[in-house]
Design a protein around this nucleic acid. Structure first.
Lengths: 325, 325
DNA sequence: GCCGCTTACGCCATTCGTAAGGATC
DNA sequence: GATCCTTACGAATGGCGTAAGCGGC
């Protein structure tokens, strides 16, 4: 049994049982991967992958268990490497974050900048994607942490910590009728205009839908995008009224627009930090968390890592005040 | 990073930082082990072992963490092998048990015999040792399960399940004065005779000491042994009155002796099953547990395996009736 | 002076890549 | 017919054992 064989098995399982694609992604030859897997199967005396002719069709029950354990082994080898790097020089290393556009564009920049100022030798890799992709990247250890708002699948191996809470703003061009009233904005007023907002599955869109649904209103969503930049652009063109996250408004660059608080119209959303359990966290990772939110102390993060279930983590943060936007 | 390098590192740590001894125990050459460890250190960029000249003196902090993680990896590779073997043929395999003389000689034989009848193809390895040795063997994964009475160190990686409870008997030669009274045995009567019993640290000896101490009595323990066979032998020679575990009396072979129940004199002892956490248990292992005690169902064992702490396990079995001897 | 780790070196096993073969969709 | 896995083979790499060197105790 070799570590590489375990890696090959795990990667092939991850790549939909396609050895060729796996080999390519690992920058090695396809026969090499094929042979090593076969050697491991011979050594263990069980098939890991079921084959029909010369195609891998599915994972055998034994293979299922083996892939799972191989995953844990590979994670632990990653931990060894991180520990070694930490002891070699705690200021150097790489740090991978996966997040959505909203976070990457509006909430993270200042915090990331401060982090890079504190740790100029750390290579920071930002991966952007849909909440689903982000969750997968975290689960498979491709990134160290993920940051997302929409609910991710609760997994045994993942851990979600509340990061901050935020509300929404309604965005309209200067001079728009909604800016002419002194009374606070109402859902009734809002629903009479065409709406421009996030695509379903992004940045708390589901919360928005639920708020209208609870009042039996059917908003006329004329345009959706996965990021606020695009949304604001179309609002400027007069296509409709925008509904975006508070953090997405910047008074300077958005001087052509007016933001009206919609805090009282929609429920508050919570953005969460996603961690992989049993992973070794480097010192700069803990410092990064503290930069994101002061309640994410090393003690709390460690306690959450040792929690048995996501429910326990949630209970742990139940009374903790979060930053609100 | 190679699995073998991790194994070498782990084994060297286990062998008191003696590379030569480690190499010998692994049936390989000493320079080979030395070189592989050095290669791993080079690759990781950190020293795992601190060297003074050409001797390993201690484990570095980084090494400490690495050895720990290597241990988990090696355990997981063992699990993979066991899973593979289980799927290859669930009736074959090897099964290693560590236990004390008392269990091996008196309580286990019939149960082991039944197990071997059910699984004739399983190779059963019985390791005998002191409770301390047994605990160590279980902790390091040298055996699949351990069975012992004396309290073992509570460890993160070990799990203790109650197996059965037992009491003590006072053993005397036929015609001994203690057999001439009709009243139940008392500690006062017992303490007036020289006593032959277990060595400290074996088979609940501590419970016995505590019982006398609670009454401020100082028994005259003239001879101690680590097993009941030896104790009974000396009782037959008239050296003193024996105090042994109930299970250690066999009416047939011990016809020269009379056993008087001492259940009311000493507290009940509990013999425990010791498991390593995160280890894959084969089907025959679960069956073995059921043979040992009917309350050790697969569900209970799995639940205990997932428990967070030993306290939680204890709570789990608080209301469960155990076999009593 | 003995023990124990490291270095040096040659042999053997293993791995990897290229090329060709055969099965499935 | 395109895709994909397996087999075959030669080159390169790497692990292992023996022998020698050298620093501690």
């Amino acid at each position: 049994m070799k570590l590489q064989q375990l890696r090959y098995v795990w990667e092939v399982a991850r790549h939909g049982l396609n050895i060729s694609a796996t080999a390519e992604s690992l920058f090695t030859s396809q026969p090499g991967v094929s042979k090593q897997i076969r050697l491991l199967e011979d050594e263990l005396g069980v098939q890991i992958f079921a084959r029909s002719g010369k195609h891998l069709t599915h994972i055998t029950p034994a293979g299922q268990a083996i892939v799972e354990m191989a995953g844990r082994i590979l994670q632990e080898t990653g931990n060894i490497k991180r520990v070694a790097q930490e002891f070699r020089d705690e200021r150097r290393g790489t740090f991978a974050v996966a997040t959505t556009h909203t976070q990457a564009r509006y909430w993270l920049p200042l915090r990331i900048a401060e982090f890079m100022r504190q740790y100029p030798e750390v290579r920071l890799q930002m991966h952007q994607g849909t909440p689903g992709q982000i969750g997968k990247m975290a689960a498979q250890g491709e990134v160290d942490v993920a940051i997302a708002t929409e609910a991710l699948e609760v997994s045994e191996d993942l851990l979600m910590l509340p990061l901050y809470q935020w509300n929404r703003s309604v965005v309209v061009p200067r001079g728009h009728p909604l800016t002419h009233t002194d009374t606070p904005l109402t859902l009734e007023a809002l629903v009479s205009y065409p709406i421009v907002t996030y695509v379903s599955g992004y940045t708390g869109r589901s919360q928005l839908d639920r708020a209208f649904e609870a009042r039996h209103m059917r908003p006329n969503v004329v345009f959706t995008a996965s990021d606020a930049d695009v949304i604001k652009c179309y609002v400027k063109l007069g296509l409709g009224v925008g509904v975006v996250a508070n953090m997405a408004m910047d008074p300077e660059t958005d001087s052509a627009l007016v933001a009206l608080s919609a805090r009282h119209l929609f429920p508050t959303s919570t953005t969460r930090l996603v961690l992989r359990r049993h992973s070794f966290l480097r010192r700069f990772t803990y410092d990064f968390f503290l930069l994101l939110a002061p309640h994410l102390t090393r003690e709390r993060v460690d306690a959450a890592m040792n929690a048995r279930s996501q429910e326990e983590v949630d209970a742990m943060f139940a009374g903790v005040p979060l930053p609100v936007f």
